[in-house]
């Protein structure tokens, strides 16, 4: 991973750098799909809703393991949660810095951890709601609803951030999550 090849068919002067391995991509789109399915399609009290919830938890668990054993760009060490770095990154954006980050940029990293935590909270409260001990307990249900609302806000911010950073850095980020390769314009510094 992290290897560079000059793109033959891509835009002229762009370097194609492999960043997202297939497992990262499958987990990403699988999680997105399960959020979509459970948020919009399934019956909230149904068994399918529960299964999809467990699937989301499974995907999350896979990703967390992969964050330890996976290749460099997938590892937690490549995108530590650092509010300080995120603030500096914001300052850099304001100052016209167009550095390209090969893994998540510091703001994106915060969003990643935020979404993982929120999904974990959703799964935990969801499992509790189905358990005998917490069945029908109000605060659990309220926490589940609140976590879902927060997840929707996060998804909007996430998609907005991806669109914004694709324009700012000139790297089509959504495509990178599909193909695994970031196509970085030749004149951009890379971190």
């Amino acid at each position: 991973m992290g290897t560079i090849r000059t793109s033959d068919r891509g835009r002229a002067g762009a370097r194609d750098i492999a960043v997202w391995d297939p497992l990262v991509r499958m987990v990403h789109w699988g999680l997105a799909l399960s959020v979509l399915v459970n948020g919009a399609l399934t019956d909230e009290d149904g068994i399918v809703h529960e299964w999809v919830g467990y699937a989301a938890l499974g995907l999350l668990a896979i990703r967390l393991l992969w964050g330890i054993v996976g290749p460099r760009p997938a590892r937690f060490a490549s995108f530590p949660p650092s509010p300080g770095a995120a603030v500096r990154h914001l300052g850099g954006i304001a100052g016209g810095d167009r550095t390209v980050h090969l893994s998540h940029n510091p703001l994106g990293a915060l969003m990643v951890y935020n979404i993982w935590l929120t999904v974990a909270a959703l799964c935990a409260t969801g499992i509790m709601m189905g358990s005998l001990r917490f069945f029908g307990v109000d605060w659990v249900e309220e926490a589940h609803e609140a976590a879902f609302s927060w997840l929707m806000i996060s998804v909007v911010l996430h998609v907005g951030g991806v669109l914004f950073d694709s324009r700012r850095s000139g790297v089509p980020l959504a495509r990178a999550m599909l193909t695994g390769r970031k196509s970085v314009p030749a004149d951009r510094p890379v971190v």
């Binding site: 497992l23 499958m26 699937a55 499974g58 668990a61 896979i62």
Partner: peptide, 10 residues
């Protein structure tokens, strides 16, 4: 391999 990992993980 990645697909297998996802399937078995699930």
């Amino acid at each position: 391999l990645a697909a297998l990992i996802v399937a078995q993980g699930l």
